[in-house]
Amino acid sequence: MGMALTLYESCREEVAKHGPGRLEKVRVQIGELTGIEPELLKFAWQAVLEGGADAGCELSVDWRPAEQFCPACRSTKPRPDSSWIITCPDCESALQVQGGYELDLVEITFEPTAEGDKA
């Protein structure tokens, strides 16, 4: 819920830079290791918007899984069914976890609502 509110404030700030407008679509990317559930975030997002001028604005989430990288093979190893692999299936080295902490506002789409749009 807190995250949805932070997201909404960031979106409003961005729109404000371009003059008054109504939010239509927001795209974020969320990494697996943030622990944020996309469906819960979308639910909280609608709750934050409810009753306001931006109600109904769609939130789309690009999901970013963490990757497991083998420093010996210098390549990323597939994680079957999103499980974690303990050692490299090819050379048994310990793997490094990379990425998965993404938590970014990527893009917003809005409809300017007044004349004199600065953008």
Binding site: T6, S10, L103, D104, V106, E107, I108, T109, F110
Partner: peptide
């Protein structure tokens, strides 16, 4: 007219 803008900003940049 609809506008689409790229933001590319960490959501927790303030934090």
């Amino acid at each position: 007219m609809r506008k689409q803008i790229e933001v590319r900003q960490r959501l927790l940049a303030e934090n």
